[in-house]
Design a protein around this nucleic acid. Structure first.
Lengths: 344, 344
DNA sequence: TACAAAAGTGGAACCGGTTCCACTCCGGTC
DNA sequence: GACCGGAGTGGAACCGGTTCCACTTTTGTA
C-alpha cells in the first residue's frame, strides 16, 4: 500500500522541473527538448506514474467527464443507451458518471447537485420533467446539457436528441387503421413528458388522416414506474366496446402490459392486434413475435454524445439543436386485419 | 455562466475564517460555536455554495466513489446489477463510476487505470479473468476490490460475492436427470472464468449422484460475447444422439440460444426440455414460459456494496470474505419428463 | 481566586497538478 | 558585432478544499 508517485517525483528522478514534466504530459502547452521529453517519458514508465485526475481538475476547473442521467438501468432501453454512451465516450477519452433517477424528481435533483460538485463538463439526460430551475442553474454554471428521448419545453434553447415521436406513433396507428381497426387502445407515457404528449398527438393525427374519431377512453397515460401498463391493459379489456388493437407507446410499460395480456390469456393477434414501442431483444421470442417500433438506440447515443462533446469543445454554433432520428416500424406477427370474428 | 462561490467567499461573507467553514462542513473535525455554525449555514444557503469534490479529494487523497466494472449493460443481468448498485450506493452517499469491458481484457485494463486516476476508494467488478497484475497493483495501492459473480483464483485474498454456482448447476441438472433425461446439453461460460468452471462441475456432480455418465460432447463452453450460444445449440441438435434436455448456464448467451431454438422450430418441451440461468423478465413471456435458475441480483448488489463499503471504512476483519447466496430454481413449463416419444 | 482543561478560532501549509512569467541560450539577420 | 526572436527551462502562484498548530477565551474544579 505504498503511495503513488507524483509529478514532483518524476521531475526529480528525471532531473528536470515539474514544468517540463507537465509540458510532456500536455503536448500543446509548451516546448520541450526532444531528448528531455524522452527521458521524462522513460521515467514516467519506470515509476508507473499516472497523473491524478483530481489535481488536474482542480486547476483547470473542469474534468473530461460527463454525467448520464437516466430513469433506471433495469429498463432495457436505458440500459442499452447507457451501454452505448459509456462505450462511445470512452473511445473519446471521456468518462461517464451514470446516475439513476427512478423517475423521482427529488432523486433527479440530488443527481444534478452531485454532478455539479464533480464539475462535469456535460450531461446527457432523460429528464423527469420537473426540476426546471435546477436544470437552468446547471446550464447557467456552464454545464452543457443534452436531453435525449424526452425534453422539457419550458427550458429554452436546450439540445435534444429523440426519435420522431409524433410520426412513429402516427405510423403505428395508421398501420392498425389500415388493417381496419377502429378501436385502438393506446398506452402512453405521462402527459408531463414530451414523449407522452407527442405520441398521443401522432395517434390522433393518424385518426384524422383516416377520418376516424378518437375515443378518449382508449387513451391511457400511465407512469413509467410501477405496473400501470398492466392495469391499463386490464381496464381497456373490460370496456363495453373492447379495443381490437393495442399500441403500447410507453417503453417502460411494455413488459408489464404484455405480461398482463399473457396472464389474461388474450390471443394475439386473434383477439387483439399489438404493436409495442421499442425493440427489446425478447420481443421476437414471444409467440407470436411482436410487431414493434424500433428505436435506433445507437443513433440516439451517438448523436447525443456528439452533441455534448461538440458543445464542450465549443465547436458548435450556439443555436440549440434538435436531432430527430426516425424509428422503423418492424412488422412481425402480432397484428392481423380486423374481421368480424374479432368482435366479441 | 458566473462561477460558483468557494469556501473563501463563504468565509468572508460570514465574517469567519475558512477553517470555521470547513469545520461546519465536516461536523466531526472540530468545535464550532453554535451561533457561528448557524450563520455559516445561512450564508452557505444564500450563496448556494457547494464544496467542489475535486478539492476535497485532492487533500484527503481519496473520494467517496466506487468503480463498477461490468462486461456490458446490454446484458440484463449486469444492467440490473448496475441499477441496484448505483441505487444502493447513492443511499450511502457514494457515487458510482460505471465502466464496461465488453469482455475485452484490454478495455478492462484501461478501465482500471482510469479508476486509479480517479482515486476511487473501491471497485466492484466482474473480472474478465485476465489482467492479474493490474488487479494486484490496484489492490496494492489501497483500492478495495470486490468481485461479483465471478472471480480470479490466481488473485489471493480477494472478496467475492456470487451465487452457489456448483450447487445451482447441480440442482438444474438433477432436475433434468430426475425427469429421466440422460442426454443433457450444457451451454456454459468460458473455462477461463470461475462461473464457467463451477457450473460444469455442478453438472458433472449431478451425473455422479445419479450414476450417469457424462458425454463431453454435450458440454459446450462458449464466450460471453457474440453468438456462441446459438451456434452451440445448432451444433448440439445435429449430434447423432441428440440431447433431450438443455441447460443454458451462460447468462449472456441465453437470448442467443433461445432465439436459435425458436428459429429452428424446436418444440419446447416436447422436443427439448430447457432450463436457463437467470430470470430475465421475458423468460415468462415466451411460450412456454421457461424454467429458470433465478439469481438474486439484488442480494448480489447489496452484499458486494456492503462489503466494499465495509472495507473502505475499515470496519471489517482483514480476512477475505466469500459470500455465496443461493439461487432459486423456478420451475415453469419448459421441462417435461423423458418419454419414448422424445427420442427422435 | 487560581489554574488547568476544554472550547473556539484563524493562519498557513499542504494535496498534485497547470500555467504564467522571467530568464538563459542559441542561431539568424542587417 | 550588435540585435532580435524564438526555443527551452525552472520558479512560483494558483485551483479549493482539509488539517495541524498556536493562540485566546471560556468553563469547571479544588
Amino acid at each position: 500500500m505504498k503511495k503513488a508517485p507524483t509529478i514532483r517525483d518524476v521531475a526529480s528522478a528525471a532531473g528536470v522541473s515539474v514544468s517540463v514534466v507537465s509540458r510532456v504530459l500536455n503536448p500543446d502547452s509548451g516546448p520541450v527538448a526532444p531528448a528531455k521529453r524522452e527521458t521524462v517519458l522513460r521515467v514516467i514508465d519506470e515509476l508507473g506514474y499516472r497523473p491524478r485526475a483530481a489535481a488536474r481538475e482542480l486547476s483547470v476547473g473542469h474534468t473530461p467527464t460527463i454525467g448520464l442521467v437516466v430513469a433506471d438501468l433495469a429498463n432495457p432501453f436505458f440500459a442499452q443507451l447507457a451501454d452505448r454512451v459509456v462505450w462511445e465516450a470512452r473511445s473519446h477519452g471521456v468518462q461517464v458518471m451514470v446516475m439513476t433517477t427512478q423517475e423521482d424528481p427529488h432523486l433527479e435533483a440530488e443527481s444534478l447537485e452531485t454532478l455539479l460538485d464533480r464539475s462535469v463538463a456535460g450531461v446527457i439526460a432523460t429528464p423527469t420533467g420537473a426540476n426546471i430551475e435546477k436544470w437552468a442553474r446547471l446550464r447557467a454554471l456552464g454545464v452543457n446539457v443534452v436531453f435525449v428521448d424526452r425534453t422539457i419545453p419550458e427550458l429554452e434553447a436546450v439540445d435534444l436528441v429523440s426519435i420522431e415521436n409524433v410520426d412513429s406513433a402516427r405510423r403505428a396507428t395508421e398501420h392498425m387503421l389500415g388493417l381496419g381497426h377502429r378501436r385502438i387502445g393506446l398506452i402512453s407515457g405521462p402527459l408531463s413528458t414530451s414523449t407522452g404528449r407527442s405520441r398521443i398527438e401522432g395517434y390522433q393525427r393518424a385518426h384524422n388522416n383516416f377520418s376516424a374519431s378518437v375515443d378518449p377512453q382508449l387513451i391511457r397515460d400511465v407512469p413509467f414506474r410501477g405496473d400501470g401498463g398492466g392495469d391499463a391493459v386490464g381496464s381497456l379489456l373490460t370496456l363495453r366496446e373492447r379495443p381490437t388493437a393495442l399500441i403500447v407507446a410507453n417503453t417502460a410499460q411494455v413488459q408489464s402490459s404484455v405480461r398482463r395480456l399473457v396472464q389474461i390469456g388474450v390471443r394475439i393477434p386473434d383477439d387483439l392486434s399489438v404493436i409495442v414501442f421499442d425493440d427489446n431483444p425478447w420481443t421476437e421470442l414471444t409467440s407470436p413475435p411482436l410487431s414493434v417500433i424500433r428505436q435506433p438506440i445507437d443513433m440516439l447515443a451517438v448523436h447525443s454524445l456528439e452533441l455534448v462533446l461538440g458543445r464542450m469543445q465549443g465547436r458548435l454554433p450556439p443555436a440549440p439543436r434538435t436531432i430527430e432520428v426516425n424509428a422503423d416500424f418492424v412488422p412481425r406477427s402480432s397484428c392481423s386485419p380486423m374481421t368480424l370474428s374479432t368482435i366479441n
